[in-house]
Design a protein around this nucleic acid. Structure first.
Length: 330
DNA sequence: AATTGAGACAACCGCCGATAT
DNA sequence: GATATCGGCGGTTGTCTCAAT
């Protein structure tokens, strides 16, 4: 018995969000924090369903989202993580905290699928075809092979995926098979400070909407400017949204909306924001200080990745890892 | 300049698990 | 325990942009 759709109500607006709607939503969340999405349409007057509000926030408006083209490093991480985790985009996104699961899913479907298909056709490239790693290949082979063969195939898959993932996550520890040099110096999990402000996201949206923003006198603090500078540097590779905006107007808009969209909730003391994130993603939320738990979980992952020696030769059971240790990861 | 097709991505839909009643 | 509700996730679709013709 499925649930009825949440938005059967007549009068619920669909389609692209307008800047005005975005402002309403962001203002509300700035005041109340994310969560209790059911109340958002009621309290804001938005003619959107709660789900739509949550999605808009999660995929577009929330702070720290990086837009634009994916770096080589990100791309490889996605491929490797997909091989390891399957189409669990939210889990994959937790390793790329600046990217949303929707973005990663889109990128996979539009770019990487084709790329991997090509690579597979040419017989080179990445060790695993992520397309078939999670289910299709395994299930197909399960029909063709005996159980033992299937298990061996799976073992090989796991080992290869682990190797690929370790290469991507810990290039300094890898065997150097696939040295990656992120073009922008972005290291996803290791630099909590790489989180960026949402101002540019909003500024992009609001371009042309407000031509004469009244510049708040107190918004040009060194901290916020630094934040924007960092963001601009990080996001310099982005093309789609950024190229539509002149640098000057970008800065002006960012300054104009700095006060509106400066999220105190980014502070680690605010738990609402973290609660709105997936457990995985919240690992990366704290800008100011590394999360000891995150460190611990990374260590666990690291341990698993590099624990081959100890486990090789033994009857290695994936389920041992996934059921127990993954329970700690996710 | 107009048309068209492909690519990119924002948004929707339906299902599931967790939780409240 | 049954049911209703909510938030979250993954698959899919719709719309927009841009390059090629």
């Amino acid at each position: 018995m499925g649930r009825p759709p949440c938005c059967v109500k007549v009068g619920v607006k669909k389609g692209p969000w307008t800047p005005e709607e975005d402002i309403l939503l962001v203002s509300y969340i700035q005041e109340h924090g994310p969560g209790n999405w059911k109340a958002v349409p009621t309290n804001t007057g938005l003619l959107r369903c709660s789900k739509s509000c949550r999605l808009r926030w999660t995929n577009y408006l929330r702070p720290g989202i990086k837009r634009g083209s994916f770096t080589e490093h990100e791309e490889k991480m996605i491929i490797d993580l997909q091989a390891l985790l399957g189409n669990r985009w939210a889990a994959i996104a937790s390793y790329l905290p600046q990217r949303t699961d929707n973005d990663i899913k889109n990128y996979w479907n539009t770019h990487l699928k084709k790329k991997l298909k090509k690579l597979q056709g040419s017989g080179g490239g990445y060790p695993r075809d992520g397309l078939s790693s999670s289910s299709s290949s395994s299930s197909t082979s399960s029909h063709q092979n005996s159980r033992g063969q299937w298990e061996r195939t799976l073992q090989t898959d796991i080992q290869m995926a682990k190797q690929a993932l370790s290469d991507a996550l810990f290039p300094e520890k890898s065997s150097g098979l696939s040295e990656l040099k992120p073009s922008n110096g972005y290291i996803s999990y290791a630099k909590p400070g790489s989180y960026v402000s949402s101002t540019e996201n909003i500024a992009k949206l609001l371009e042309g909407w407000m031509r004469n923003p009244s510049k708040p006198a107190s918004t040009n603090s060194a901290a916020t400017q630094q934040s924007f500078d960092n963001m601009a540097g990080i996001d310099s590779a982005s093309s789609e949204g950024t190229r539509r905006m002149e640098d000057k107007s970008s800065i002006e808009m960012s300054e104009a909306f700095e006060s509106l969209f400066f999220f105190e909730s980014l502070d680690s003391s605010n738990s609402d924001f973290s609660q709105s994130m997936s457990p995985e993603a919240s690992l990366f939320q704290d800008e100011s200080k590394p999360d000891p738990n995150a460190q611990g979980q990374l260590s666990l992952l690291e341990k698993w990745l590099f624990d081959d020696g100890a486990n090789q030769g033994k009857d290695y059971q994936l389920s041992d890892i996934t059921l127990e240790e993954n329970a700690n990861f996710f």
